[in-house]
Computed example of a mutant assay.
Amino acid sequence: MDIRSMRYFVAIVDHGSLTRAAEVACVAQPALSQQLAALEAEYGVPLVHRGPKGVKPTEAGKTLYRHARTILKQVESAGADVRAAGAGVSGAVAIGLPTTAAAAFGMPLIRAVRERYPQVRLQLFESMSGYISELLNNNRLDFAILFRDTPSRAIEPEALASESLYLIGNLPESTGARRRRPAGAGRGTIALKQLAGVPLALPSGSQGLREVLERNFAQAGVAPNVVADLDSLSCLLATAREGLACTILPASAVNPSDAAMPTRLILPELRRTLSLCWPRALPRTRAAEAVAEILREIVAARIAQGGSLKPAPGMPDAVPE
């Protein structure tokens, strides 16, 4: 298996189609099919499932895909480092941002990278954290922001900040929380135990936020009444806005134009940690380190502003000027 074969196989898996992969790789489809057949003969196992809707990798194919991605990234990094030696920072940097993090940091990051490192080509993937984690595990990203603080075999997290979680939306009258909310206040509070029975729309179980919530609900002995699993920030907010169910999100997720939407701090306070997560299998390129440093600066500046972001556990409370 050579580098060219790796590129062809990665293109097939990425696009799920031999025809589309051939177009992207600028090679005739019969030649691409022959390369795939040669790989399957070399390893002695099927690497893809062929069907009317395209091709999908087998378990063996997924394993080869992860390794091929890693090797191609290392080859690309080596070339970028050689070209950058003695020159400015350059090269492609692929990062993943969950939707709430993208709303807060995406544009400031793009502006700063363009200003400081015009030779860096930023590739930004915005999605729910579960999909971002999948991209990171498959070595498709240089790094990502994830809501986790524990390392794994594949990921090394670096805590950047933490933020409180709020109940968003109108509560049933039976909870009594609305009456205790100060008149005219933009935000009130609610005890975690009062959420028993409250209809909730939450991200699905594969998302970092859901894991944080389930852990805290279990510790409090409260069974969450989840009526919808929505992996869409806009749908979560719309569901709360229309009174269909409440949701739980950081305050930064709520648009200032939604100031009239009830937003209550949950007590005891629930917090999630924002971490810069690096894939252990990939080298950290000079360009990736430069972009990561900009992101650290942006987050530190937000903490210093005294908004919803706070230092992560173990971080100093004060941010040096």
Rank of each mutant, 00 (worst) to 15 (best):
L202S: 09
I95A: 01
D317E: 14
E23K: 14
R50G: 06
G188S: 07
V227Y: 06
A11S: 14
S5V: 01
R178F: 01
K310M: 08
L146C: 06
L295Y: 01
N216M: 02
R286W: 09
H15K: 11
A78L: 14
G16D: 08
G96L: 03
V299R: 12
V222C: 09
L146R: 13
P320C: 02
T70R: 13
P320L: 05
Q305K: 14
T99Q: 07
I294D: 13
Q305P: 06
A318G: 04
V198F: 08
S275Y: 12
L295D: 07
I71K: 01
Q119S: 12
T19D: 08
N170R: 00
V10L: 09
L233T: 05
L160D: 02
N170W: 03
F217E: 10
L274N: 07
I266G: 01
A80E: 11
S133F: 05
A290L: 14
Q207L: 07
R178Q: 04
G130S: 14
G61P: 12
G51Q: 12
L141A: 09
L146N: 07
Y166V: 08
V45L: 08
E156C: 04
H49Y: 11
P157A: 05
K62R: 15
L165K: 06
F143D: 08
G96M: 02
Y8R: 11
V24D: 03
A159T: 09
A312Q: 05
V48M: 02
A304D: 13
G314A: 01
G91N: 10
L267C: 14
L39E: 03
P283I: 09
G96E: 05
N170C: 06
V93E: 04
G16T: 11
F9Q: 02
L141T: 09
L195A: 02
P46N: 06
G44F: 00
V13S: 03
P30R: 05
P283A: 13
N139V: 02
E297W: 07
E156V: 12
K62V: 03
A287Q: 12
I71Y: 08
A300T: 05
A253M: 14
L213A: 06
M128W: 08
A25W: 10
L97A: 04
A240D: 10
E59N: 07
V48L: 00
S308D: 14
A87F: 06
I155C: 06
A22C: 05
P98V: 00
A290G: 10
L230F: 10
A41C: 04
L167N: 04
A304I: 06
I71V: 13
E242F: 03
V319A: 12
A185N: 12
L109R: 10
G88Q: 10
E321G: 04
V10M: 09
